[in-house]
Amino acid sequence: MTGPTALPPRVDRWWRRTVIGMPYAWLLLFFLVPFLLVFKISFSDPIVGQPPFTPLLSPQGPGLFHISWDNYRFLFDDDLYLVSYLKSVHIAFISTLLCLLLGYPLAYAIARAQPPWRNVLLLLIILPFWTSFLLRVYAWMGVLGDHGLINNLLLWLGVIRQPLKILYTDLAVYLGILYSYLPYMVLPLYASLERLDPDLHEAAADLGAAPLTVFRDITLPLSLPGIIAGSMLVFIPAIGEFVIPSLLGGLDSLMIGRTLYDEFFSNRDWPLSAAVATVLLLILVLPIMVFQHFQARDQAGVQ
């Protein structure tokens, strides 16, 4: 630029510092530091008092660099935690699969609809997402209960004589996750399916591929980024899910989120809870990295 500018560069320097500095400082204080704290406290000893763990920086405490592996040792000695971790992965995996089985045909049907219809159909997918998550999970209690919609319907039809036990089982947890996370699956799938050039399908048909072959050879491989993105968006939060297993699951639907919550509020063993959270985070690192990798590749492909 030439000539004098209206504002002195001092304002711009101040502006640049504000734009970068404010959110940066906020996230450091309220996101990064808390994580380091979780990590640190997972190596502390529990004490009776407030706060219920050995203090971080007080002169009579063991200090910042004291490391106790007791919490982790306990974690791997007690079956409860191992079972919870495995059960979480298991439930999240099956629910993700169910989401894919329902979400893919739905996304495909929306992508194949006439353009003005597509927006309406998408809005109807997202609409329940805006109402309370808690209330949506609650609504399924009315569907699955002993005197719920499904049992009443089956009894009325004469298919069963005794109500089926669905609520407070793993099946109810699968259905709850499927229901709550369906939009996360449908939206990325729709985005990748809608982007597909219809010419590609016609070209494959022209070269001798019957409709199902076209789907296998063209549609499915080209929607793979959407499948991965959608699956990760369901799988990752489902592992740490608390509300769904706690409202719909049975006593044996021990997902790690619920175990951690109970550990924290009932037993007040904060250091052990911090250790449970640290291990959960380590479990999630792999799927998160897979997700980020494919997102970055997808972004590069679009540009």
Binding site: D199, E202, A203, A204, D206, A209, A210
Partner: peptide
């Protein structure tokens, strides 16, 4: 149906399958 006709088409957009190599496209 199109997949059983003894004629082939070259598309204006070319419609090359982006996930296949040139060889795989031609061999399809």
């Amino acid at each position: 149906p199109p997949y059983a006709r003894p004629l082939n088409m070259m598309f204006q957009s070319y419609a090359l399958f982006p996930h296949m190599t040139v060889g795989q496209n031609v061999a399809y």
